[in-house]
Nucleic acid binder design. Structure first.
Lengths: 337, 337
DNA sequence: CTGAAAGCGCTAACAG
DNA sequence: CTGTTAGCGCTTTCAG
């Protein structure tokens, strides 16, 4: 290819990278040769020669626990594309071993950075490995304690307390929680928010009103069934996430229990169809777009300044009040929490 | 690293790849050295040296037109991981130029194959480039005519005709279609299915009952509004996809028009919440999981046999009958079409 | 059973 | 303004 242009490969390299001045006619010849030979630049070889990155970042998360992950992943992809990078997307399946393998694969492929929604067991192997790899990393969604990492996720506690506030405002005192996957920081924080909400509304927590929803809609439905057998019954239900909401709603419907007449419902995770559901769902909307954008901003920040102390950012989530909680109004964000 | 083990890099390479017999003690020393030095294999260098692939495939599609893309993308990711590969995911934004840039970026990174949901303009640059790249490619979802490519997507025509059949069975004759983005093969096929359905039910098509839904829920709502002003009105509506359905439903709701009492509704794209919507949605469910799996199977097939003639596969989609069409029953797949 | 050496496709001094 | 040359980190004959 360099020879069909009658120049050295060095010159070719320079015209491709625009990295030094080339006489117009030479430039022309090179460009022509590129067309005719169908030459295609090999970025791998470049990365190797430059000892530089591959213009790609790894994203590892669990779609399983994040059904509308397009909201989260696509902003990340978009920001990356703007910077000329590509996204290597992998699924952890909420399993520490798979996560470890995945992150290894990412590291071996010399990604420039990693964005990870850690599994419950990430602290064992994955996080330590990541730490000593020295690669820019930002943790997503599920935040972690021993934080020598940059992190960004929703504030979970206060919005959950806000749900309790709202339900208590409707006069409910027997408020049940259907918790998410145990071990996830998000689950813990939401549980904590639930307790905080009860406390500040002067409601004594009843252990029997906290159910483990497991990790699927089916399990959540069964948990709901248990709850409904309690005596006295809960008058309001808080599903801790999307899947729990689906499960609860389906069980309620087949049991012909009416929402919000027989039981009120307000939980985590809003989505486009929320107000078309029967009844329109009151739910906390997480700001996925912002979370995704901040993630890659924090990543590029860290690339620029590798040893600035790590930061943790909480992104505001807001309660979308509709009818499942017992309200009559339409789409009104209650308050930024 | 090779020196801390006291062996040649050649040997190191061989123990890593298990590519020749090594004396146990040497092997031990190498493995130890790997641990202590924190050595990490560079797959880029390997790919370069081997002149082989990078164990990664590129996936290019538009999430925008595919809101529940997790269903499609995650099966692909899963199959890939099983084969030790990783997925480079990029978004075309339904824009031929962006798509072209993206596919170029993928090619430059020496992916082993590409899975593409082509934009309407893909035939201009992207497809030709892909063709002469000689890389294994499978086209997804939107199928293309000049097919020297492997392709896999839903059958769109017959299921759409099936919707018309069903609606006609309820006695409807003024059946409106809110079409999807023009230029996409899926939109065209669905339109065709609509016509076929009318014809075989002895209904004369009325041009005024076919509206362009544009590409967003908002536009679809406005299209619905136009339709509602017609005289006489349509008695049944077919939104050609997810977004159209959201838009139509939202407009109908704010206009206090009842489904299915005032107007029946049945369209394309089912999802997990369909039976929790008010009213439960009758919709055609595409089999995304199968489509995703077949895509990577076809890709690996092609890698094995580069010049087998290309195949096009249509995956069955089935009508999930619920209440928005006027039926009373629960989740019953009507028939595989 | 193991090492030396050439080379994958590119970049980056360093001359000219 | 352009070419020569020495690698980048690995794999792979080819000799020992």
């Amino acid at each position: 290819m360099a020879r069909t242009a009658g120049v050295s490969m060095s010159t070719v390299s320079h015209v491709i990278n625009g990295t030094r001045v080339v006489e117009p006619t030479t430039l022309q010849r090179v460009n022509d040769a590129i067309k005719t030979t169908g030459y295609r630049h090999n970025r791998l070889a470049r990365a190797l020669a430059r000892g530089a990155g591959t213009q790609s970042v790894g994203v590892a998360l669990s779609a399983q626990s994040n059904p509308y992950l397009a909201d989260l992943v696509m902003p990340i992809e978009a920001s990356l594309t703007d910077h000329g990078s590509l996204m290597l997307l992998g699924e952890t399946h909420e399993d520490a071993a798979k996560e470890y393998r995945l992150v290894n694969a990412l590291l071996d492929r010399r990604v420039d950075g990693i964005i990870l929604a850690p599994t419950p067991g990430a602290g064992e192997q994955t996080l330590p490995m990541l730490a000593k790899s020295g690669l820019p990393v930002v943790l997503l969604d599920r935040l972690v304690d021993a934080a020598n990492f940059d992190q960004v996720g929703s504030d979970n506690t206060e919005p959950m307390a806000g749900i309790v506030d709202h339900l208590a405002g409707h006069g409910h005192t027997r408020i049940a929680l259907i918790a998410g996957i145990p071990g996830l920081s998000t689950s813990g924080e939401r549980r904590e928010g639930y307790l905080r909400g009860l406390e500040r509304n002067g409601i004594t927590p009843i252990p029997g009103l906290v159910a483990e929803g497991g990790s699927s809609a089916g399990e959540a439905g069964r948990a709901m069934e248990q709850l409904w057998r309690r005596h006295p019954r809960p008058t309001a239900i808080i599903p801790a996430n999307n899947y729990m909401t689906v499960g609860v709603l389906k069980w309620l419907r087949q049991a012909r229990i009416s929402v919000p007449d027989d039981v009120a419902l307000a939980g985590f995770d809003d989505f486009e169809w929320s107000d078309l559901i029967d009844p329109p769902l009151t739910a906390v909307a997480q700001n996925w777009i912002t979370i995704g954008q901040r993630a890659i901003e924090m990543l590029t920040d860290r690339m620029a300044a590798p040893d600035r102390p790590p930061r943790t950012e909480r992104i505001v989530a807001s309660l979308m009040v509709r009818q499942s909680c017992g309200c009559g109004s339409d789409d009104v964000p209650a308050r930024g929490i």
